[in-house]
Simulated assay, not measured.
Amino acid sequence: MSDILDLGGRVAFVTGAGQGVGRQIALHLAAHNAGGVAVNDFVLERAEKVVEEIRAAGGKALAVQADVTNLDSVKAAVAKTEEAFGKVGVLVNNAGNAGATPHADARKPFWETGPEAWNSFIGVNFYGVVNCTSACIPGMIERGAPGRIITIISEASRYGDVGLEVYAGAKAGAAGFMRATARALGRYHITANCVAIAATLTPAIEARLKADPERYKKMMNNYVIRRPGQPTDIANMALFLASDASSWVTGQTYGVNGGFTFGL
């Protein structure tokens, strides 16, 4: 039986892939016949460790350091990927949270801060998506084969979490950008979709929840499936959207959230 999730040798570029959700997405894509996976991270050493994992499993991978908030840095990383593997056919915009260098006031109420703190969220979660998408689109079009753009957003953008107002706005902006991009690129057989995630056991979240069992218990009361997400849960959806199994799906947002929110 053929693998409907086979990527057919498409080259993948995954941002923020040195750990957590991005790492698992990179591993998933590599295991399903990616022609090469560019593992991007702000910290090169993290990316290199993931590359070692992929190569040990028989896949092709390359570590590419880049700050996604800097367009020139992104373009250089994409050029390095193209030189090694060919044009990018799958882009996963995963880098997020408060960016590589969060502002000291990023977690304060937004009305008590200013643009420097807000940009911790807007820079990586919105401009990072715009930069990476812009850098990869020309190659996808030139390649002349189906392309896939997948952006990892947050349920904060749909639910509206208190204390995450600017983050929620940036993620919602990324989702709107993906919908417009989907309309613009459909003629080239390039799809663009979002995956909206909720509490997922990345290393940072896991450590935080283990340190506060009561907070963990209270949080899980908000989930129909009473467990936090695992990076594999998110990677499964990203793989589907990267494959030909999703060839007639574009401009959509899929909630992978344990029932934290429901949507039509």
Rank of each mutant, 00 (worst) to 15 (best):
L164N: 14
N236P: 01
G99P: 06
L27E: 00
V21F: 06
T200C: 12
S2F: 08
V74F: 14
A38F: 13
G255H: 11
G169A: 15
A245C: 12
E48Y: 15
F121K: 04
G258V: 12
A17C: 08
K171N: 14
G16T: 05
P231R: 04
F13R: 03
L62K: 03
I4T: 14
G160L: 07
G22D: 01
G36K: 02
T191C: 10
K75M: 10
V130I: 03
Y254M: 05
N93I: 12
G8L: 02
T81Q: 07
I190Y: 14
L71V: 00
E214D: 14
A235D: 03
G9H: 14
G258N: 14
V92Y: 06
G8V: 13
L71I: 00
H189I: 01
H189Q: 12
R158P: 00
T81A: 10
I25C: 05
G251I: 00
A199F: 09
D3N: 12
A198D: 06
T181K: 01
G176M: 10
V50Y: 02
G22M: 01
I149S: 03
A196S: 15
Q230D: 13
Y167A: 08
T181Y: 05
G144L: 15
G36F: 02
K49W: 03
A84K: 08
I152V: 07
V124K: 04
V249R: 05
P115C: 06
D105T: 05
E52W: 02
F121L: 14
N257D: 13
G59V: 12
E48F: 15
V124F: 11
A117R: 02
T200W: 03
M220F: 08
E142L: 07
F240H: 11
R148L: 04
P228C: 09
G16D: 00
T15R: 00
K49L: 11
G128L: 06
A31H: 12
A106E: 01
A145Q: 11
W111H: 14
I234C: 09
V249Q: 05
I149Q: 05
M140V: 04
R227Y: 10
I4H: 05
R208V: 00
R158C: 00
K87S: 12
N40P: 07
V21W: 02
A235H: 10
N40E: 11
A34Q: 03
S157P: 03
L264D: 11
Q230K: 12
D67S: 09
A106Q: 03
N236F: 00
A192H: 04
G160C: 10
D6P: 00
G160S: 07
V162Q: 15
G186Q: 11
R55C: 07
N221G: 10
R23M: 07
I153K: 00
E142H: 07
V64Y: 04
A182M: 13
T202A: 14
V92H: 06
T151Q: 02
A156E: 12
H28V: 06
A156S: 12
V249K: 06
D105R: 13
G128H: 07
A242W: 00
N221M: 12
N40M: 08
H189M: 10
D212Q: 05
A204K: 12
G123N: 02
I25G: 02
G173V: 09
P231A: 11
F240A: 15
A235F: 13
R148W: 03
T200H: 04
F42L: 06
T191M: 09
M178I: 09
